[in-house]
Amino acid sequence: MNGLSLDNFVKRKVLAVQEFTEYLTNSIRHLFTPPRYLIDTLIQMDVIGFGSLPIVLLTALSIGGVLALQTHRTLSTFGETALLGQVVALSMVREIGPLLTALMVAGRISSGIASEIGSMLVSEQIDAMRALGTDPLRKLVSPRLYATVATLPLLTVLSDFFGMMGGALVSMSTAHLSSAEYWNSALQALHSEDIIQGLTKPFFFAVAIALVGCYFGLHTKGGTEGVGRATTQAVVGACVLILLLDFFYTKFLMAIGFF
């Protein structure tokens, strides 16, 4: 890479960060100002929330079960299998539930958003929209942002519950714990800070999922091949951003002595 191309590469990256920052600011600002597209938002809530339900619940049930299986082996060494409920509940509510739900939704939704908006861009539908007096940020981005922010926390709650259900099934069948023993252990371990931590993370993750998907869709270049590239970039970008946000948000909560 010669000096000139390195210079261009850096300029492009700086420009991309600048564009994303401007886009992020405008998207969030549009949430609080009219016009709002209520019907589009409801449709997106159905697509993003209800549509993601099967995959999110199945994953949570499976992970909760696997978590109980793996932990059971370790705990049984110390004769502490009664703690299974506690381990599964804390892991699911604090970390695995929000993170796994966000990653699953990112895989399904960021890619879907990027490919839909990317296809609209290459077929000039976005230009047509602007020509007909519509701001694409309001019409396309805001409803998806609203819908993801509204549905991801709800999906996370269900995911947490199904994860604990998976753990319960394994605990009862493998560790021979009674249902009461498992749920008592699980519920006693959970404190309000665990629940708050687990339920605030999805709001940040939702912003990442919707905005990254829309951003790559709106910056699609080069026809159908570009749509494919944008889709991949959206999933990778959203997943990386979710993991980074998770780390820094947890670190932040620890730094302020939240738990």
């Binding site: 077929s123 000039e124 539908q125 230009d127 047509a128 602007r130 020509a131 007909l132 007096g133 701001d135």
Partner: peptide, 23 residues
């Protein structure tokens, strides 16, 4: 700005190459 352009765009209609209908 983009929002200031909307009144001007109302004076114009465009037919894109492939129609660009919302599919």
């Amino acid at each position: 700005a983009e929002t200031e352009l909307f009144p001007l765009r109302r004076k114009m209609g465009i037919v894109f190459q492939e129609g660009a209908l919302f599919d």
